[in-house]
Every structure is written in C-alpha cells, then in structure tokens.
Design a protein around this nucleic acid. Structure first.
Length: 504
DNA sequence: TCTGGGGTCCTAGGACCC
DNA sequence: TCTGGGGTCCTAGGACCC
C-alpha cells in the first residue's frame, strides 16, 4: 500500500527556541540578525551548535569553531544553550504533531516522523502538512519545515529542501526530477568521507549513485553501506515509523579539557569525574552495565580506545573507575598531551542480582553509600537537565525559582533574602546549561530558593565595570574557584574512601 | 585561535574451534 | 606435523547522525 509520511524539522531549532525566550524577556529577535548558539567566546574550544539564517550567509556552519565564525562575522551575536528550555519546547512541539497522527517517531530533540497513512481522511496531504506547520507557528511561535513523501527517507530529504517555514513533497514519482540532480552529499548517510570516495569514482550526483551496480559500489564503500545507499538513491526505504522508543544501548560521557592533560594525577581525576557522571546517569535510569570502554584523544586528534567486560553488571562508580584505570596504560603513555577523554558503558541490563553479592564484598557498602549521597546531591542541584530524570526529587519541586534579567539583580535578591532571614546562606552555583544561579540554603543545607539568570554564564561583563558589575564579576571568579576546589576535594575524599574500603 | 557531546552501526582482523 | 578453510565471537577504529 502507498504510504504518506511526514518529516517535521524545526528550523534552526536551538536558535529559534533561544530567540523566543529572549523576546519574551524584552530582547530583540536574534533570528533576524547573524547569531549563533555556542559556548563561551573566550574558550577557544567552543563550537557552533546552531546558527541563524543571516549567520549562514556569512559562511558560518554548524560545528565550526566559534573563533573562526567570529572572524567571518565580528558582529555575530552569541547566546549560550539552554537545554532545559529546549526540552520544554521539544515536548510542546511533539505534542502538537501527535494530534495529527498517533504513529509518531521522535528522531531527535527537534525532528519527528508521522505516518499519516489512514489519518488524512481523504484530505490533501500538502494541505494537512501546511495546517500542521502553521499550527505550530501560531501556537508555539517558531517555524518548521514539513517534508511529505512516500517513505521516511523521502520525507526527510524533502524537509531539507528550501527553508524556513516550508512544505515540500518528494513522492516516489518525483525522485528522478527532484532528487537525482542533487549532489551525493545531500543523501542521508553520505558524509564527508563517503562523498570523497564516490566523487573519486566519478559518482557526483544522487542520480549517478542510483544507477551504479551495487556490487561495484560495495567495493568502494563497503557491503552494507552500498546496499543502503543504492536503495536510498532510488528512493527505496521500507522502514516503518517506530512508535516505541527503544532503550539506549550505551551511555557515554566525554570531556574536552581546558588544558591538555599530561600527568597521571590529572588524568586519574578526569577518570574519576567521568565515572561519577556516567554511573550517576545509569543509576537514574535504573540500568547496569557489563562493559566499560575508555578512550583518549590526543592533541593531534588521534583516538585510542580499549574496552573490557566487568565481572558482573554494575552501576557503582568505584567499580567502573577501577576497570577504567586498568584500561588506561594500554592507550596512554602518561605523557602524550591528551585533549579529550571519555567513558562508555555498554551491555546494559535491568537485572539487579548484583545486590546478592553485597554481603560478600564489604567494600560495596562504602561505595553504595557514597553513590547514594552523590545522587542525592546531584538531584537537589538539578544537575543535568538533559538526563531523563526518572524520579525528580521532591525537594526540587517545592523550591521557588525567581528569574532575573541580569546577574547583578540576582545577586542583589539573594543578598536581600539573607538579610531578611539570617538563618539562610547563599552560594553562586551556575547550572550546567549555562544558566547562572544563586541558591539559598537554610542551616541544614536544604535548598529553599533559587535566583537564576537564564543562559547568562557566557555573558561575563568586561571592560569598564560599575561597582555592581565588579562584584558580580568577582562572584563568578569565586564560584569557578570554589567549584574546582570542590571537585579536587571530592576526588581526595573518594581516594580516602577507596583506601579505607580496600584496607590498603 | 581550529575543531563539543551524545549516540548508532559497520568493518576488518585476530583468536579459537572444527 | 603441516596446511587450508569455514564459522563464530570479540574488539579497535571509523563513519555517520543530530
């Protein structure tokens, strides 16, 4: 049977979503000027996460280093990402799409497929797609492209035609006229390397690719890829719109260091931090991992990795760290400058027979308590908005949050609260999404309030500062220093704990 | 002043067994 | 003891996506 598939793609998603928030607080529409979502402009390692259409006209592309983008366009407006807000926008976007068909597959935070077959009620697919597009725009304030096609591949290709705020069709019968003239690179799963290989053999358009013998193609790009790409180039894709989200097969955490790591102590601290983060995430999701993989990326971008299987599935930080440490000597000589390191957990399961061994291994008691404490603190601080929080801490739900347009006013509000109630203390604690935050705690350390400046950490005032700004600036330096001291302290505490637990 | 972070899947080669 | 080949499993590295 002929299917009708929609692919809905938010135009410059992160940028549009940030724009809405900025407009709501009285700012200008950054979609209309050259602008990007990126990290701290002072950090040479920041890259472009999203760009506006005017920014694209300066030759700025996603994943470019921010420094090179600023060279192309010195007046570029740079805003930090706000993942919590993006998740909220995404949820609303998906909810509207779901009103059009229950057969929905969320493909990423800003894309989904709808199987409209049987849900059109005789209506013209393009009219329905246009209504969906306009519906999202009027209710949520941002634009999308809708691709309409005979299968997922064609719908996705169609949504990528001209942007923004457009509906395009790519039916099977239109493949030859609309898709074959395009360069091979435009085909899904043809990246830089595959493009190079294909062009080397004179295959430069999707039409060329469609006519190449799959056997010949296999010797150029590999067996599996040749079958897929040959089908794709001919507009063939039988894959269904998957309604059920499948569980993650692996969890990974990677960090690029501010300065390349060249000594064991610093590397061991990094392994500890990575282990803490990734182990916390699997505990939140209630899974355990059997395999651990460690990778390091050197200054020259060469990557080395090693993996191993643990004795049994675990979600314990100390165990994961122990295995990660055994992998390290195989991939690092202890002196080569390392720019990035990461840990991936795989072979995941839900069974927790690990508990049975608790009593045989007295160390586990220490480790389990430490992890519980870590999880409790992480939840209270609302650490990572991107993690799918299975259970939210009750405390967090009750804490009032006050938003401020600037850091100075947030600092002032926090100070006044302490003045009114001397039982309270406040501390500056930026959230991971770039939102600045002053938290208020009572004498027991319980968080009772938050004064936040959404997405403000990158906007550190420089140059001639007023006294208020000076103080704010100092509070930032302070918080950075405190955070790094805290991380060092936590590492030392954990090392003590391991010594105690292992009796060494 | 180059180049983030979180995933999935595939390939090629080695180990091991028959 | 040598040689070849097929099948399976494991893993390091690479390509791609958003």
């Amino acid at each position: 049977m002929d299917r009708v598939i929609f692919h809905i793609d938010v135009n410059s998603a992160f940028l549009s979503w940030s724009a809405l928030k900025i407009i709501a607080s009285g700012g200008a529409d950054i979609r209309e000027v050259p602008s990007v979502v990126s990290g701290d402009p002072e950090d040479r390692r920041s890259i472009i996460t999203a760009k506006s259409i005017p920014a694209k006209k300066f030759g700025i592309n996603t994943a470019d280093p921010l420094s090179s983008a600023l060279r192309k366009c010195p007046s570029l407006v740079v805003v930090p990402p706000d993942f919590e807000w993006y998740s909220e926008c995404s949820r609303k976007f998906i909810a509207i799409c779901r009103e059009y068909s229950p057969v929905l597959q969320q493909f990423s935070i800003d894309e989904c497929f709808l199987d409209m077959t049987g849900f059109l009620g005789g209506a013209d697919p393009v009219q329905v797609a246009t209504r969906l597009k306009d519906d999202i725009h009027s209710k949520l304030g941002f634009t999308v492209n809708v691709g309409v096609g005979s299968n997922k591949l064609l719908a996705k290709m169609a949504s990528d035609f001209t942007k923004p705020d457009k509906v395009h069709t790519l039916w099977s019968r239109e493949v030859e006229s609309k898709m074959w003239p395009l360069p091979v690179r435009d085909l899904l799963y043809v990246g830089k390397k595959t493009e190079e290989k294909l062009v080397h053999y004179g295959i430069s358009t999707i039409g060329h690719l469609a006519k190449v013998n799959p056997g010949t193609l296999g010797s150029i790009i590999g067996h599996k890829a040749s079958l897929t790409l040959h089908d794709y180039a001919n507009g063939v894709d039988d894959s269904p719109v998957e309604v059920l989200t499948q569980e993650a097969k692996s969890y990974s955490v990677e960090r690029t260091f501010k300065n390349d790591v060249t000594d064991y102590k610093a590397m061991d601290r990094a392994l500890f931090n990575l282990s803490c983060t990734v182990a916390h995430r699997i505990r939140v999701d209630g899974v355990r991992a059997l395999s651990v993989s460690l990778f390091v990326k050197a200054k020259d971008f060469s990557v080395k990795s090693r993996q191993c299987q643990m004795e049994r599935p675990t979600d314990t930080t100390a165990i994961i760290l122990r295995y990660a440490r055994t992998l390290l000597p195989d991939i690092w000589d202890g002196s080569t400058p390392i720019r990035q390191a990461g840990i991936t957990l795989g072979k995941l399961s839900h069974d927790d027979f690990d508990q049975l061994f608790l009593f045989e291994d007295p160390q586990m008691e220490y480790y389990r308590k430490w992890d519980e404490e870590y999880d409790r603190k992480a939840m209270a601080e609302g650490a990572d908005p991107r993690s799918k929080m299975r259970k939210k801490s009750r405390q967090e739900d009750d804490v009032p949050v006050t938003e401020h347009p600037s850091g100075e006013s947030a600092l002032k509000a926090a100070k006044e609260a302490v003045k009114k109630n001397p039982d309270l203390t406040f501390e500056r604690k930026p959230l991971q999404d770039g939102t600045d935050c002053f938290i208020l705690q009572d004498h027991s350390g319980k968080i009772v309030g938050r004064h936040v400046v959404p997405g403000s950490v990158a906007k550190v005032p420089k140059g001639n500062l007023s006294p208020e700004e000076e103080e704010y600036r100092r509070s930032i330096d302070d918080a950075v220093k405190k955070a790094s001291e805290k991380s060092a302290r936590r590492y030392e505490q954990f090392m003590e704990l391991m010594k105690k637990a292992t009796g060494k």
